[in-house]
Structure formats: C-alpha cells, structure tokens
Design a protein around this nucleic acid. Structure first.
Lengths: 334, 334
DNA sequence: CTGTTAGCGCCTTCAG
DNA sequence: CTGAAGGCGCTAACAG
C-alpha cells in the first residue's frame, strides 16, 4: 500500500504538498497539483485514515445507539442519520444494545476512547443523571426518546399532542368510550401518550373510566392480551387506542378472535406508522412520526456540537402526522 | 483526557509498563500492576484507540454492506454479525447503500483506507469481477448473496433446494398447477429459486406451463400485480409460490381482492420468513433462512480472514427451514 | 507557492 | 520484570 511519501517522491514534491492536494488547499499551483494527482493515480494511493485520525484527533465516526435493530421503527431514523453523516464524510457505527444497559454505556464511552466523535441515543435506559453528565463532556444528542427538563439536544415529536389528536379523531367519529393500551409506564414517552389521551378525553367530555386504561409492553402479544381485557369489560369500549403499532396489531387480532369486526364493532388506532401497519387488515390508522427527519435533524445538531462546542441546544419537537387508513372506518352508527 | 504517560508518571513506572498492564501481559509483577491499575482509575484513563489503531495498523472495525436497512430481512443478519463482532472486540460500521452501486464500492474501499479491517457484503451489485479481485486483496465475505463459482468465502442457504422443498410441500397437498412469481432474474438467487421450482415441478410430474412463471421485483406491489396476472389466466393456478415474503403478501392481497380465499381457493407460499409473514392473514407458509446464523458464520469467517491470511474458504450453505403456517391449508379437496 | 520538521498516543523491539 | 526509544502515516506550523 503506497503511502504519502511514495506519492511525494514520484511527483517530485514534499509530503506537505501532497497533503495539501489531498485537502484541496488552494495554495498549490495547477501543474503541481496535477503532477501529484497523477502520482496518486499511478500508485493507487489511498490516504491512511488511521494516521489522519490520530493526527487530527478525530475519528469521523458517530455511534447511533438503538435498543434493537430488528425493530423496524428505528431503521428510518438510522437512514436519516446516515444520509446526513455521509454528506459530511462521517461514518456510522451501529450500537445495537439488545436492550442491555451496560452495552448502552459501552457505546457511549467509545467517545472517550476517541473511537467516535459523537453519539446519538435513540434509547436511554441508563440513568438520566449519567447521561446528562456525559452530555456535558461529549457531543451527545437524543432522538425519539428524551429526558424531562434536561439541558441537552433532543429531537422528538410532541407525544402528548399527538396522542390527543388521536382522541380528537376518535371523538369526531362519534366514539365516547375509548380504551387505551399504554406502553410501559416507566418510559417517558409512554406516560406522555397516556397524558395526551387523558387530555383528549377531558377536552371532549368523554368518560374517564380507569378500567379502560391498561398497560402493555409495546409487543404484539401484549397488545393482544390487553385488548382482550378491554373487550371483556362489562361495558367494552367502541374504540381502542394502542400506544404503538405492534400493540395495535395485537389488538386487531384480539378483536377478530372474539368474533368482532374492525372497524365496524371496534375501531383501532396505533402509533408510529411502521411498515406492518399497511399490511394488516384493515390497514391501521396511526400517528406517523417523521422518523427520517428526526434522524437527519439529530445528526445535523450532533455535527454542530462536534464542530463547535455549542451546547445551547434544547428540546426540538418535529411535527407528526395523523394517517387515516381503514381501522377506524367512518362515523359510528347511532 | 489523561494519556498513558500521565498514568505512568502517577504510578512511578514507564509507559511500556502501563502498556503491558493494558494488554494483560503476564510479565508484570502483581504489585506493579496494581499500582498502575490504581493510577488508571484515579485519572479515569481510557486508552486512545486512534493511537493504538495507527500503531497496530488496524481499526478493529468491520463494515457490513446492505442494500437497504429498512428491509427487515437484513436486521437479523446484522444482529448475528454484531453478536460475534462484539465478542471479539470489533465494531460494526453500517454500510447502507440504498441500492447505489457507487456507495457499495465506497464502503468496500474503506478497507484500503484502513478505516475497516474487513467487509461483509450482504448485497453485491458491483460486478463479480471487481469483487473477486478485491477479495484477493482484502478480507471479504459474502452473505445471503453469492457469486457463482467464485473462490471467496460465501455464506448462504441453498436456494435451489429450498425452492424445490416448497414445491414438494405443495405437491403433497395435492396442487398440480402452481404459479411462480420470480424475483428479478438478474440476481442469482432469483434464478436459483426459479430453478428449484422447475426442478420440483419436474420431479413431481407437474405441469410446466410457462405462463405460470412471472417475474416481480421483490416488492409488495409487484407481488400483487403478478398474482393478478396469474389469477386472470384462463386456467389459473391453485397455488402461488412467491420468491419472497413481500411478494407473497402482495399475492395474498390480490387473491382476496378478486373475491377468492387463501388458502381455500388459492394457496400462497413465501420465502425468507420476515416478521410481517406472521401478521398477514392467513399467516404465511414460507422458507425461513437462518439469518442470525448466517450473520454469525459470516463474521466468524471474516475474523479468520483478518487474523491469518487464510483465503481457503469456499461456499458455505446453511440449512433452511420450511415453516408451515396457514396460507396453504390442508390437502386440496378432490 | 513549496519544503522541513515536530509531533498525535501508543506498542514493541531491544537492553538491562 | 522493567525502561528507553523508535516509529506507525499524516497534518500543520513555521520557514523560505
């Protein structure tokens, strides 16, 4: 593998000049540049990034920490991140934690080892304190998840408002008794969605029956189980709002299993708009998070953090969209 | 950020000794080791990987090149890769090409820039010649995809046999007129699956009507369109075998749309066993590739390639599984 | 516009 | 068992 000095010798210049050509510096005469370029081509020269990185004390790499790459929700976020990363010459290291807290922290610490220049957290099971402390020292951005009141860059949607919009939709359709399958309540976005749900209920003067609120774990089976619970109530709901699409899919299965129809007997709404939402029948009405945009924005902010030590970013909330498909039907009869 | 010399000074030893402790060398007395360890802890010392990598001329990073991270098929392969990578202290760089050939090549070339020690190709749109040439020079493994007759490590299933097994299954169920939706025929695994299909037909003495073979592009809409074509034939098939699950899902939609039932009127089989296959109704009978295992195996082989220059690996074929769900029903009536 | 030179932080002989 | 010293290949002052 040819190195810089080989190019320099072949072109009859110094390594500094070669380096300048590589950097696209303007302070090189056209003919010298061409000589160098030719020598590089002749030798099939590729700069050694290991050396460059050490010299510049940067890795041109960022880590994106996600709980589980198999979860389709994250792939669009990652695509957004990679899109911006690529434009700026950054590589994206995959930090799939498989829901392991230690793994999460290991990935974050890669920055201190200079194996990465920054980190985007799309999951945060580590304690908020540790994360906030780390964010003081290294470029760190949170996406999708966030920490309440934290002074660090976070890119999410407004989960409260989004959930409330679903209730608006359901109320407009005539539903007055709505069941809610919450996500695990120890994560903040689950609590936000619940809060938005309750807010909507109140605003539309709908029943607030605590037996209509159940808690799942974001999985299809838990959506199924909790939907069964709701449907077995003495006075079952006419609509079920699940806090993510997986649980909504489970709920649809439960409704069908009990011999009822979606949306005629029970309307179902999801959250996130994953690809599966269009495959299930009926296609799911759901909230679409701008996943790609969230990834892009998170990466853009991270870049700013890396370039200057500008720690002045706060919580950015991107607009979500309500996608109306078939799982809620038209207006309720009666 | 403390560096090695700081630790050395605090512990009253030389940098060489600190380096030895870091490497876990046995040639350090217990008390010296403890002194050093304490100094490292006191200073919160983290080795600078940039420097280490340059010195050892390695990046402890591998690139996994995939066509599209949003395609759920690949996430399990990546998980397998990451699982092994992690065990061996390697990082995984994401090479999502978005189906762009140039991007593919750029990721492969990262090895020459020493930004990665090896590459796993889960897609290969670059010319076989270029890839084979590159494989001579750098550690490279192919997974899922392969190049016919190439002398490089490849980990896949046997697509011919797998497809034949599907025909076996359908034939056993009594189907004699089977439609086949091929993948894009310029990719080899599509041709393999077609070949297996024809082989099965022949073996079971079934009709070989060329109008029963159509070509899609692995997408849901193409599966839908091609299924419609098959069903509109004067003598439509009683079963449709799609070359991947997405097309099978499209086919199921087409069947239903035409007022027919799966599996009663038309059986449908897919290929790959993606998560969606269990969500669609009826749940898809399909071929399950050992994706996680393929990823693991590919990474293990890559590691061997990196460690020794052992280029003696060939084409490894892992066993697939036929997953029987509901989309084929029981035996055909009559 | 071009060349010389001093490191970046670490690992690894080679001595002792 | 421990220390001294020479680079890995590149970039960025500093000179000229």
């Amino acid at each position: 593998m040819a190195k810089m000095i080989d190019v320099a010798r072949l072109a009859g210049v110094s390594v500094a000049t070669v380096s300048r050509v590589l950097a696209g510096s303007a302070h090189v005469s056209r003919e010298t540049r061409e000589k160098v370029l030719r020598a590089m081509a002749d030798l099939d020269y590729k700069p050694n990034l290991l050396a460059r990185n050490l010299r510049k004390m940067e890795s041109k790499t960022i880590v994106v920490v996600i709980p589980d790459i198999s979860n389709p929700f994250f792939s669009d976020v990652i695509r957004g991140i990679q899109h911006v990363a690529k434009e700026h010459g950054y590589h994206v290291l995959l930090g799939d934690t498989q829901n392991d807290v230690d793994a999460e922290w290991d990935f974050i610490e890669m920055i201190k080892e200079r194996a990465a220049d920054g980190v985007i957290l799309v999951t945060a099971r580590t304690s908020p304190e540790k994360i906030m402390e780390m964010a003081q020292e290294v470029p760190l951005v949170m996406a999708c998840e966030y920490i309440q009141g934290a002074e660090l860059p976070m890119v999410t949607i407004d989960n409260v408002i989004s959930a409330k919009r679903v209730v608006d939709h359901l109320a407009a359709l005539g539903h007055r008794r709505i069941g809610f399958i919450a996500g695990p309540l120890h994560v903040i976005i689950s609590r936000d969605r619940l809060q938005g749900f309750v807010l909507g209920l109140r605003e539309h003067g709908l029943e607030q029956d605590s037996s209509l609120i159940v808690e799942g774990d974001f999985s299809i089976p838990s959506g199924y189980d909790q939907a069964v619970r709701l449907l077995q109530l003495p006075e079952p709901p006419t609509a079920i709002f699940a806090s993510n699409d997986e649980m909504a899919i489970g709920a649809v299965k439960a409704v069908k299993q009990m011999g009822l129809k979606v949306p005629q007997d029970v309307a179902v709404v999801g959250f996130d708009d994953i690809p599966m939402a269009t495959v299930i029948e009926p296609a799911l009405t759901t909230i679409c998070q701008p996943k790609f945009e969230i990834g892009k924005k998170a990466m853009e902010i991270l870049l700013q953090l890396i370039q200057q030590s500008n720690r002045s970013h706060g919580h950015l909330k991107l607009p979500e969209k309500l996608i109306v498909r078939d799982s809620c039907g038209g207006r309720l009869k009666g």
